[in-house]
Amino acid sequence: MCGRFTQYNTREEYLSWLADEATLDIPCDPTPIGRFNVTPGSKVLLLSERDTTWHLDPVMWSYAPPWWDKKQFINARIETAASSPMFKSLCEYGRAIVFADAWYEWKKEGSTKQPFMIYRENRQPLFFAAIGSVPFERDDKREGFVLLTANADGELAEIHNRRPVAMTPEAARRWLHHDISSEEAIAVAREGMIPADEFTWHAMPASRLRME
């Protein structure tokens, strides 16, 4: 599960953790992204590799293939993404990264749901594994990307049974490379997930989490 997250630092701050091994085609922008409640159906800065060069494109957070006539997807399970007819080609050719600082989960408490903001204890950025329809520079309202999720473990499972696949910078760099298969990339993402005990969280007022 990941239905809301934050992306508020500058692109340079995120890239500084990743870009030592890549050729970039990304213009400098010192302005903070400043999004504290990123919602599905909005465009999100997505990092991908094309012709060995990294690109940053605004891409719609939701996806459905042209033949799908039901609700669009925002997440895909890492356990089945590489083999699912829905996501197999995306996992092979459309691997990408979403920058984030935290994500939100809602925990049922009595008759209400309490939102929690979850982030790394050391406040380092998160690099979510994403897959989407390529080429990402195409402005297509029907096709976009989804975030990969995995089973939550440790104390994270007390809030929600799923979590986004937040990778270390090393795993994130490898995830983008086209010289590995989708199965190999999935293994990289799973092995490079940030452990549950490196996260902390706090409750948020529900009124703060309005749609953007």
Rank of each mutant, 00 (worst) to 15 (best):
T23D: 13
F87E: 02
D29C: 13
P32A: 07
R50W: 09
S83L: 09
D20T: 13
L45R: 05
S48P: 02
A76S: 08
I78S: 04
A96E: 02
P85Y: 11
D51F: 15
A76R: 00
L18K: 06
I33P: 02
L47A: 12
G41R: 03
E92D: 09
L46N: 00
R35E: 06
H55A: 13
D51Q: 13
E49M: 09
T80D: 02
G34F: 03
P66S: 12
C91M: 03
E12V: 09
D57A: 14
W61C: 03
I33E: 05
L46C: 09
W67R: 11
A19Y: 03
L15Q: 07
D69G: 05
S83F: 09
V98G: 05
Q72E: 07
A81H: 05
E13K: 06
P65E: 09
D51L: 15
S62F: 10
W61Q: 01
E12M: 14
S89G: 03
V44G: 03
T23V: 06
Q72D: 03
W54L: 15
T31R: 12
W54Y: 04
Q72F: 08
P58S: 15
I97K: 05
S16P: 03
D29R: 14
E12Q: 15
Y8I: 14
G41I: 06
E21S: 15
A64S: 10
E79F: 05
Y93E: 01
P32S: 08
S84A: 08
D51H: 13
L24I: 10
L15V: 07
F36W: 11
D20M: 10
N9M: 10
E49N: 15
S84D: 12
W54K: 07
F36S: 08
V59P: 05
L15A: 04
C91Q: 00
P32G: 11
I97W: 00
L47V: 09
T52P: 10
F5R: 01
E13V: 05
L46D: 02
T52R: 15
C91T: 06
R95P: 00
Y8D: 14
P32K: 07
V59R: 02
S83G: 04
R77Y: 03
L15H: 04
K43D: 10
E21G: 13
P66M: 07
A81C: 04
E79S: 03
S62V: 08
Q7N: 12
T10R: 02
I33G: 04
D25S: 14
S48M: 06
I33R: 08
L90N: 07
A22R: 13
E79N: 06
W61D: 05
L47K: 04
L46G: 01
K70Y: 14
I78N: 00
A96P: 01
P40S: 15
Q72S: 15
P30I: 12
L90D: 06
D25T: 11
A19N: 09
D57R: 14
E12L: 07
T31E: 14
P65S: 14
N37Q: 09
G94R: 04
A82R: 04
S89L: 01
T39Y: 12
G94H: 03
T53H: 08
G41L: 10
F73T: 08
L56W: 00
D51T: 12
D20A: 13
A19P: 03
D69T: 03
A82K: 00
S89F: 01
M86W: 02
